[in-house]
Amino acid sequence: MSFLEMRGVVKRFGSLEVLRGLNLSIEEHDVVCLIGASGCGKSTLLRCINGLEPISGGEIQILGDRVSGAGVDVNRLRRDVGIVFQSFNLFPHMSVLENICLAPRQVLALSKAEAEARAYELLKRVQLEQKAKAYPDQLSGGQQQRVAIARALAMQPMLMLLDEITSALDPELVAEVLDLVRELASEGMTMLLATHEMGFAKEVSSKVCFLYQGVVHEEGTPEQIFSAPKKPRTQAFLKSIIEAGRL
């Protein structure tokens, strides 16, 4: 039994079919990178997994439990599946500490002291302890994204979904966020990343999936996908990436 299993997942927005019967399975401690052109459905796929977008067909299972469709407690599901967004989406009216403590206190019903202890531990980890009392608008993009990762980790999720988390960052801030993801990977966190950082995908992932026309067009180990892609679409995509100097 796989950790995460997606079978024939379909997602439509009106008449637009974004996911067209997508199959994907992930084992525990896998780091899976989703690559593909803009609009190929990477973000939609991630949002379907934690129920932010209801799927139109197919089924998603986590550890054998169905987590899509009717009758699923999405609030319960989201405790175990953390997501980090491209645009950070920190709560601007709360300090860094309050951002991190909100969900553990309200959803997990931790006491203030417990939540704060957990938050400080995570802040130490993302090297932002001294920013605990700062507000998001006072931080750089890289710092905000690290706080967002800490906020997701505070729920102690089983699976982390990272949705192009470095795309909105200035180039010099990308490294600090990727270092953190690298660390999480080495600790065995199961992760699913949508990314345009091909070099990073090559280095960190245990599996790479190329999405094309709403399905996983080709998947394999990073060496296999980046060095010897089998299908012409994958080859064309990687060729354009190399020509743009991004690999």
Partner: peptide
Amino acid sequence: SQMMAARSLGLNFFQ
């Protein structure tokens, strides 16, 4: 995106 971020942390609509 604020609603999305909060809901993705497991908070319900009223929270």
